[in-house]
Design a protein around this nucleic acid. Structure first.
Lengths: 341, 341
DNA sequence: CAAGATCATGTGAACGTGCACAGCCTGAAC
DNA sequence: GTTCAGGCTGTGCACGTTCACATGATCTTG
C-alpha cells in the first residue's frame, strides 16, 4: 500500500540464500571479511552483485549503537560565514573527506538557543557518531555539552576557553602566520610597523598579536603599545583603527591587520588620509578572503590551508570515534604576496 | 567497554514504566497523541521530561521504512556554485526549513561518476526519504534514476529534458524576469536593445531569450537575429559576445545579458570600446550575484527569490513524501535597479 | 597419535520501535 | 437492564542487522 518498492529491497537473508551460506557469513564479509574462506567470500560478493543488495543502516545502527554518520555543526552562524568562500571550501572538503569513508554528513545550523537545544538533544541521543564544530564564539556551551554527553567533537579553530583544553581541534598556525607577515613587512624595509588586532577574547586576536610582538623583539625593535589597535574583524572597525594609528603615528610605514575585512577598511582610511599603498605604507591582511582580491590594491595576506584543515578535521574525528585520543593539529599558513605590501 | 553512556540512554520502555503505562501508549503520545486520554498523555510527557528520553530514530526507521531525513544533492558541482552567495542562501534555507520539521539534511556532492553511483545506491536503498536536487546539467541521469527507484525528488530550476516533465521542480520565473528587465530598458528610452543569452540547451537560456522577444513584440519593435548573441554564462563569453554585437551594431543603446558574470564581461568590453554605461549603453544582468555589486558601475539585475525557492522546495518535497502529487512551482523575480541601466 | 589450537561456519538472541489486534471501560440509547 | 458503539489501553510480533556462542573441520605439536 504505502510503498511496494520497499518490499523488493533485498535483505541480508536473501543474499545468504543466493550465496548458499548463512547470514553470519554474509555479515562477516560485509564487515571486513575476516574469518571467511575465499570461496565463501566470492560467493557472497557475487550474490550481492546479482541481488543489488545494500546494507540497511538503520538495522545496523540499532544494534551497533553507531549511526555511521557525522554532523557538521555551525553554531551562532554569521552572514560572513556564508559569504566567505573559505567556509565553503571547509564544508565541501569535509563532505568529500567523509564521502571517501562512505559516511554521510548532516548539516546543522544552530541559530537560536532553541535550535541549539534541539541539536544537542539530537546529537546526544546518539544519532550521529561525532561532530565537526564550527563556532565563531569562544565560550560555546554546545561544545561542553556534547563533550559531557560523550560525543566526539572536533572544532575548527583553537578554542579560547582554558577549560576546553581537552577539546580536539584543528587550526591554522595564527602565530607563525602573523610572524611571517611581520617579517615580510620588516624585510621590505619598514621600521614603524603598527598592527590592528582582533578581540583579545578570541584566539586569533591573541595569537596574531603575539606573533607581531615576537618578530619585533626578534628584530630588536621596541614594542610600542600605541602602535596597537583592536578591532572586531569587521570592515568599519579597521577603518577607525587605522585612522587612530595614523593620528598617533604620522610616520607609520607598515601595518599588519588581523583580518582582510579590517584591512580593507584600513586601506580606505589610508586613502582618505592621502597615504599611498604600498609606497608610503605597506599593508598586510589575514585570511585570504575574497575581500583580499577585490580590494585596491590587491591585499598581501596570510592564507589558511582550508582544504587541509577540513581533511584533518575529518581524520581526527574518525580517530576519536575509533577511540584514539588524538590531540590538536596545527597547520602551517602561507604568505600570499600581492600589491599592498 | 565501548561506550558506557549508551547503556544509560532511556528507551520507550523506561518512559512507560515511569509513567505507569504501556509502551503502546507512549508510542501513541509520540506520534500525534490520538486515542490517548489527557491524563495518560500528561503522565507520559512528564516521564519523557524526567528521563530525558529521545526517540531512537534507527529503531523507528527500521519498522516504518522511512528514515526521517532528506538529502541535499549537488550533482556536477562547479566552482561557481560555492562562490555564489545565492547557492549558500539556498543551502541554508533548505536546512532551516527542514529543521522546522525536525528533519536533518544530508549534504551530498556528486563530483565524479563513481560518486554519483555511490549516492544513487545510497539513496535508492531508502536511507533518505527524498532528495533536493541541484544540478547544473540539463539531462542529469541522476534525477531519472532516483525517480525510477521511487524516491521523491524536487529539483531546483526548470528541467530541460521533456521526458522529465513529471519531475517536480521549483524555479524562478525566468521569462517574466527577462520581460521585466527588457521593459525597464525600453522604459529608459532605449530602442536598439541587444541580448546576450545563455546556451539554448538550458532552460534559463531559452526562457530569458523568449522574454526578450516577447517584450520587443509588445513594444512593436522588430526582432533582429543579429542583435542576439549566445554565451556560456561565463565572464569571458560575455565580453566576446558584447564585442561582436558592437561590431554589428555600433548604435547599440541597450543590452540585456542573461547572467551577471557575462554582464560583467560585457561591461569590460563596452569600456574597451569607449562606450559609457549607462549613458550610451544601458546594461541589465540576471541573478543578482556578488558580481553585480562588485562591478563598475553596479549592475542593474534580476533577483531570484532564493529564500522562497528553498522554502518551496522543502514544502513540495515533504508533500511528495506524504504522497501528494504537487506540481511545479514558479516564483516571481524582482528587478533590482542599480547604476548600469 | 592424541590433544589442543585455530579457523570457518551456523544459530539464537537482542537492539528499540510501530502496528495490528484484542480486550477493557464508559456512556448513551432503547 | 441490556446492548452497542467507540474511545482507551496492553501485548505479541516484526523490521534487518550484529554479536556471542557452539559446532565441526583442519592443522599443529609434543
Amino acid at each position: 500500500m504505502r510503498n511496494p518498492v520497499r518490499r523488493e529491497r533485498p535483505t541480508i537473508h536473501d543474499v545468504a540464500r543466493v550465496a548458499g551460506v548463512s547470514r553470519g557469513t554474509v555479515s562477516r564479509v560485509l564487515n571486513g571479511g575476516h574469518h571467511v574462506s575465499p570461496a565463501a567470500a566470492e560467493a557472497v560478493n557475487a550474490a550481492i552483485r546479482t541481488t543489488g543488495y545494500v546494507v540497511n543502516r538503520h538495522a545496523r545502527s540499532l544494534i551497533t549503537g553507531r549511526s555511521g554518520s557525522v554532523a557538521f555543526l555551525l553554531t551562532e552562524p554569521q552572514e560572513r560565514f556564508f559569504e566567505d568562500p573559505n567556509f565553503n571550501v571547509l564544508l565541501r572538503g569535509c563532505t568529500q573527506a567523509l564521502a571517501a569513508h562512505d559516511i554521510p554528513l548532516l548539516l546543522m545550523i544552530a541559530g537560536s538557543r532553541d535550535e541549539q537545544r534541539r541539536i544537542v538533544r539530537y546529537v546526544s541521543a546518539g544519532h550521529v557518531d561525532g561532530v565537526l564544530l564550527v563556532s565563531s564564539h569562544t565560550g560555546d556551551p554546545v561544545a561542553a555539552q556534547l563533550a559531557q554527553a560523550g560525543i566526539p567533537v572536533v572544532a575548527c579553530g583553537k578554542p579560547m576557553d582554558p577549560r576546553a583544553g581537552r577539546l580536539a581541534h584543528v587550526a591554522a598556525d595564527d602565530r607563525e602566520g602573523a610572524r611571517d607577515m611581520v617579517r615580510h613587512l620588516l624585510a621590505g624595509g619598514r621600521r614603524r610597523v603598527g598592527t590592528i588586532t582582533g578581540p583579545q577574547d578570541t584566539p586569533g586576536g591573541v595569537d596574531r598579536l603575539a606573533g607581531y610582538r615576537e618578530v619585533l623583539a626578534e628584530a630588536g625593535l621596541p614594542f610600542d603599545e600605541s602602535l596597537v589597535e583592536t578591532g572586531d574583524y569587521g570592515r568599519d572597525s579597521g577603518a577607525v583603527a587605522a585612522a587612530r594609528l595614523l593620528d598617533r603615528h604620522p610616520d607609520l610605514d607598515g601595518l599588519f591587520v588581523a583580518s582582510d575585512l579590517m584591512a580593507r577598511g584600513a586601506l580606505e582610511a589610508l586613502a582618505r588620509a592621502g597615504r599611498s599603498v604600498p609606497d608610503q605604507v605597506a599593508v598586510g591582511g589575514f585570511d585570504d578572503s575574497s575581500a583580499a582580491l577585490a580590494s585596491h590594491p590587491a591585499l598581501t595576506t596570510v592564507r589558511q590551508p582550508w582544504d587541509r584543515i577540513s581533511q584533518e578535521m575529518v581524520r581526527v574525528l574518525l580517530a576519536r570515534i575509533a577511540g584514539e585520543d588524538t590531540s590538536a593539529v596545527i597547520l602551517p599558513t602561507r604568505l600570499v604576496v600581492r600589491d599592498s605590501g
